[in-house]
């Protein structure tokens, strides 16, 4: 009988000692969760852009992905428009327009000055698609056009031919947005334009000057010190042009105002 008392006491004692600590711990945890929930409005899985084609649902063939990626990179270089493809498995019941708008703005598709981005979103489980159009392209790709592009490509997605469907979507979006912006001319293009703008005798003078320079270079190459200087010049000119490789650098920070269409 006597032994039963300390036995039943022991847990009580430990409970009493741990009680406040536990409560404080729980409180702190609660405060932490509260603070954290204040920082991030919604729990979300972070999607990071991998390039112009982001096939998170794995529905595209490698070949299609490679082709679209290089096409869209080229398109960006000539027009500065950024057209981005995203495929996802599921939206877990979220509204496709909401999702597309938030993702497009988070990634900042399109340039900051022109807001010329387009997001093509394909959801695998529901078969829904959306074309989200940046503020700067709403004029050339109005909602009605976006909708008709989606309707025209509906059969491909119904038959789950994603390669064909996505390629067609991209093609039509590119066709619609093509004329809106032009990339600033490159050095070579600027030079050619400048040369064409010269009068005929200026052209002749320029060519003669260039020939004299070439002769000088060739003569310099004959001597040791001269060839070293010329070599350094050529090396510098070539070296300045190499671009760093590596991961995807991201988009230009374009804004989206909810334009586009879903189907």
């Amino acid at each position: 009988m006597k032994a039963a008392v300390p036995l039943s006491y022991k847990p009580k004692l430990t409970q009493r000692r741990r009680g406040p600590m536990k409560r404080i711990a729980v409180l702190m945890l609660g405060v932490m969760i509260f603070l954290m929930s204040g920082c991030t409005p919604a729990v979300h899985k972070d999607l990071k852009p991998t390039g112009y084609v982001n096939d998170f649902a794995n529905v595209l063939s490698l070949q299609t992905k490679g082709k679209l990626e290089s096409d869209l990179l080229n398109y960006k270089k000539t027009t500065t428009n950024e057209v981005v493809v995203v495929t996802v498995d599921s939206l877990d019941g979220q509204d496709i327009a909401d999702f597309a708008n938030h993702l497009a703005r988070k990634w900042g598709i399109g340039t900051k000055e022109k807001n010329n981005g387009v997001l093509i979103l394909v959801v695998k489980d529901t078969g829904k698609r959306r074309i989200e159009v940046g503020r700067g392209l709403e004029g050339v790709l109005p909602d009605a056009t976006a909708k008709s592009i989606l309707l025209e490509t509906r059969p491909q997605f119904k038959n789950r031919q994603y390669d064909e469907g996505v390629s067609l979507l991209v093609e039509k979006v590119v066709l619609a947005t093509k004329g809106e912006y032009k990339a600033p001319p490159t050095e070579e293009q600027r030079f050619i334009a400048w040369f064409i703008s010269l009068a005929w005798w200026e052209k002749v003078l320029f060519v003669i000057g260039a020939l004299i320079l070439l002769c000088l270079v060739i003569a310099a190459l004959g001597s040791d010190s001269g060839s070293a200087i010329v070599g350094a010049f050529i090396g510098g000119a070539l070296g300045g042009d190499d671009s760093g490789g590596g991961g995807f650098g991201g988009f230009g920070g374009g804004d989206f105002g909810g334009g586009g269409a879903s189907d």
Partner: peptide, 18 residues
């Protein structure tokens, strides 16, 4: 009508976003 419908949809969406 289809075009107007698409425009109305887009407009409602813009209102929501803004």
């Amino acid at each position: 009508f289809l075009e107007l419908q698409a425009q109305l949809e887009g407009t409602e969406n813009r209102i929501k976003v803004e």
